[in-house]
């Protein structure tokens, strides 16, 4: 199964990509390919893969198939800290590195907050409510900061918050790929505890899993991957929630080696397809990636919820 998907998906998306290259745009010259196409391609793959892996880890950690970086407000943490850093107007904080650092920090802190709430609330739905409230609290707070900031700062933040895959430059790619690789390799290193965590934390403890350590590792990976993607692309909703669920339905397994590998493939493919669509409609209107993933993702979430409540 996995070999098949490993072989197939890259081939089919390359063909897609090629066809779009040739059909959509005028003869692709080297500068466009290097400065726009490649970063955008890599960023699509990275964003999709990262968010899906994070979603999977959170779903396993919280034993909740409806968990994800967006619904649990991890993105919000990034947004809040990026907003704060941009509004301070301090040059370092508004630089790329400053935004990445703040985004990671925000994601990590909000990860800890959610972890804290997950110890208190008992039901799956309650945790999601906490996450959503965290999200709306932050967006209210961010609006408040916006109203108090000047035009230049507002412009920088609004552009960031719209979210897009085009902001990355070629020279930033090595760093981004390196950080993403750390997060993804990290998640492969905890396959065994993840597999056991499927049974719940109590059972995992009885089988000798060091829960506290695993929890922390998961939150760190979550912060790294979500923070990075959010820093460059802005918030992207529902990918982290929907993709792991699709993967489980398709592969019908709880073995995390397969789930992680498949989430990477499917997540990358998902954003890629979304971005292809965005590029196709670009001559007519601007479609932010977050808008498109919400349009596709939100109904899926409702579907999953209904299926679980039945």
């Amino acid at each position: 199964m996995i070999h098949l998907s490993v072989g197939q998906i890259p081939i089919s998306f390359q063909e897609y990509w090629q066809s779009i290259f040739n059909f959509d745009e005028h003869a692709a010259n080297e500068i466009i390919a290097r400065e726009i196409r490649f970063p955008r391609l890599y960023m699509s793959l990275i964003a999709g893969a990262s968010l899906s892996v994070v979603g999977l880890l959170m779903q396993t950690l919280f034993n909740n198939p409806l968990a994800g970086p967006y619904v649990l407000g991890i993105n919000s943490g990034s947004s809040l800290f990026v907003a704060l850093s941009i509004m301070t107007g301090i040059p370092f904080l508004t630089s790329d590195l400053g935004i990445i650092a703040n985004s990671l920090l925000g994601a990590f802190l909000f990860g800890l907050v959610i972890l804290f709430f997950s110890r208190i609330v008992r039901t799956q739905i309650a945790l999601l409510l906490v996450g959503l409230m965290l999200g709306s609290f932050v967006s209210a707070f961010v609006s408040f900061i916006q109203s108090a900031s000047n035009a230049q700062e507002l412009k920088v933040f609004t552009l960031w918050a719209l979210g897009s895959l085009q902001k990355v430059e070629y020279t930033q790619l090595p760093l981004i790929i390196l950080i993403t690789a750390i997060g993804i390799v990290g998640s492969f290193l905890i396959i065994k505890p993840l597999n056991i965590l499927v049974l719940g934390e109590k059972e995992a403890k009885l089988l000798g899993v060091n829960i506290k350590q695993v929890r922390l590792v998961i939150i760190i990976i979550t912060a790294i991957l979500t923070g990075l993607v959010t820093a460059f692309c802005g918030p992207i909703a529902f990918v982290g929630l929907a993709v792991p669920n699709l993967v489980r339905i398709l592969f019908k397994t709880q073995q995390h080696f397969i789930l992680i590998a498949a989430s990477i493939m499917m997540g990358a493919l998902f954003i890629l397809v979304c971005d292809i669509f965005i590029q196709l409609v670009e001559p007519y209107f601007m479609l932010p990636i977050n808008v498109l993933t919400s349009i596709i993702g939100a109904p899926m979430v409702i579907f999953f919820v209904l299926k679980r409540l039945k």
Binding site: N63, I196, V198, E203, L207, R248, T253
Partner: peptide, 25 residues
């Protein structure tokens, strides 16, 4: 009994071997 989707009987039972298996399980 943990209520989880898509957990196969043999995968569930083999989790009992966790103590005996190596780092990657």
């Amino acid at each position: 009994f943990p209520i989880v989707d898509f957990l196969k009987v043999e995968d569930f039972i083999s989790l009992g071997r966790s103590y005996h298996t190596s780092y990657f399980g």
